[in-house]
Design a protein around this nucleic acid. Structure first.
Lengths: 338, 338
DNA sequence: GCTCGCCATGACAGCCTTGTCATGGCTAAG
DNA sequence: CTTAGCCATGACAAGGCTGTCATGGCGAGC
């Protein structure tokens, strides 16, 4: 380990005071171009890296962004991490990941960490985006946060989301366009805000097409494979079957496909199946799953951006937020109604 | 935000010097039980949390553990994180996650972060556990690290692993026990040390049972669904098919199942399929996948433990390391040979 | 009863950086 | 030519904690 070099070494090397080095490092104004170059040369020559602890102790930034999650889908979680990190790296920030078990005492889990770490901001993923205790703790500790895909209370804080309602609407329209009129729907986990919006998109599309929604065609799920499996057993149990099923996420759609497989139904000839999320699992089936690609990576990146650059909020105005585009991914699991 | 309370407040409240508070906080000796209690009471009363930046600036610990990964399997990655965090929380440590793109300049990615963050240790997941540039950078910067499931150069640094060879051996024995004599095998990604060991386990079991291994029954894969799919197409392409296929991980096994599904093979009657890892995907198929449960959670926890408590290495002795137990998970995708 | 020695505690410096404020040099205006 | 005013720079303190070392109190031994 090379003896660690500090800002003093750089200052001496370039013949200025440490404050000037600091100014160059932080891109502050009031440094002559010539001086700036000299300092940067010294930094490069000495291979100097500022010490993050000293920085955050002295200054106001911690160079740390937190990601809180309590999400059963590993694909979603890593995607968020990757998206956030990509942005953070550019600005010299780092990512602290903190799983939060929302069935245990949430306050106990996050309060200590918030106080010791004093992160610059926290990215909240569903269902934590709508967890009242989490939001309250963050606000109490004065830590900025951005919610990803929140379900309600939209004006409370900045968020990044996509139009779940519209996406579900488009997917339903896709099925209707294939000739399906009798479509089953599986609702997502009630704690996730997106669940309601996706359901609403389905309802709107059916209504706009003048199609009825039978009560026995809508089942409650929990975003898990198992819940999709069970819902599908009910939906496909009778002699009178829907010709398509739209599940509110991919895992549940895979559950539907498992049931269909077991029943020896031919996909998509006898049953079309659509999911939502475009998780890696969507490509891992036969036939591959028609689904909605969420811009998870981009959403996390945008959230990190807002946090690093300080979410300025004007009094009275709604918090700065972003709605990103989704993409309908049509694969082989949906086909013409027969 | 409550005005942040410091060690001085606690000291005043309990009538001792800040140094004594520090001693209590760090469980140092030389504090009277009575004094210790008073300090702890004050800490609780004031809801005091030490500032991590100040701590790491003054002391030698950073209270940060890094996790480096470049792993295509999100399930594996989150499992490692969860396992590591569970331990870290108990000791007040936090987890920094750093994806490393091993196809880009690895040095550029990790050297700056190592220097600024000065983490107490880093957990390396495959294939990074065997990446020479990563290991060298860590050693140069004097950052302790623990390798998870390294493939070779075992005495270079501490590691945590499981007996991949034995697990593959047992799985093969399971298949042989079901009456299979003609078994296909799909090798894992050549960069992962475990791949070779699993392959060896398969070879050993077949040899010990006196069974031949046909060259055209062994295919190279890359741990991805697609590679499993393609390998299966070759293995199952001819009229003369193996009665069982053992894939070196679950994703590839799922690829095999997709091919079998498409060929309308009845599982496990016409083909037994076995995987390795017990990822969430293993339960997401029909029939559910027989596989090997890796103690990923426990391995990560053990690695975190070693890092937090300082990996003491005696000169000449091999580094302290741990081999954890695996578990054969027999589900419905394997059955008697017909 | 006194001294030695150990144990519990405290004063102080130091970790590395940023923020504040003062200083000196320069330009433009009087 | 002088001075106000601005800009670039530097000296110094502060930030919260731990490590070192000195100090004071106490019990044991003589």
């Amino acid at each position: 380990m090379s003896a660690k070099i500090t800002i003093h070494d750089v200052a001496r090397e370039s013949g200025v005071s440490i404050k000037t080095v600091s100014r160059v490092l932080n891109r502050e104004p009031n440094v002559k171009a010539d001086t700036r170059d000299r300092v940067q040369a010294a930094v490069a020559a000495l291979n100097y890296r500022p010490n993050i602890s000293a920085r955050s102790l002295a200054g106001s930034k911690a160079y740390l962004i937190g990601v809180f999650f309590d999400n059963p889908s590993p694909g979603y979680v890593t995607d968020v991490q990757l998206g956030a990190i990509a942005r953070c790296r550019q600005e010299g920030f780092h990512l602290i990941v903190e799983p939060v078990d929302s069935t245990a005492d949430v306050e106990d889990q996050i309060a200590p960490m918030l106080a010791t770490l004093r992160m610059d901001g926290v990215i909240l993923t569903p269902p934590l985006s709508d967890h009242p205790v989490v939001l309250a703790a963050l606000e109490r500790e004065g830590v900025a946060y951005v919610r990803i895909a929140p379900g309600g209370d939209i004006d409370r804080a900045p968020w990044v989301s996509m139009d779940d309602r519209l996406a579900a609407y488009e997917m339903t329209k896709h099925l209707i366009g294939l000739g399906h009129t009798d479509i089953g729907f599986i609702i997502g986990h009630p704690d996730h805000g997106a669940s309601h919006q996706r359901h609403q998109g389905f309802i709107d599309a059916m209504r706009d097409a003048g199609l009825p929604i039978r009560d026995d065609r809508v089942e409650q799920g929990w975003f898990s494979f198992r819940s999709g499996f069970e819902a599908a057993e009910k939906l496909l149990g009778g002699v009178d079957r829907p010709t398509a099923i739209f599940a509110s996420n991919d895992d549940m759609a895979l559950g539907v496909m498992a049931v269909a497989n077991r029943m020896r139904l031919d996909l998509p000839a006898q049953l079309s199946v659509a999911g939502f999320d475009d998780t890696p699992g969507a490509k891992i089936t036969w036939p591959q799953l028609t689904t909605v690609r969420q811009p998870i990576h981009a959403m996390a990146g945008a959230a990190a951006d807002m946090l690093m650059h300080g979410v300025e909020r004007e009094e009275g105005a709604p918090p700065p937020s972003r709605l990103l585009d989704f993409e309908l991914v049509v694969r082989e699991s949906t086909g013409p109604a027969t």
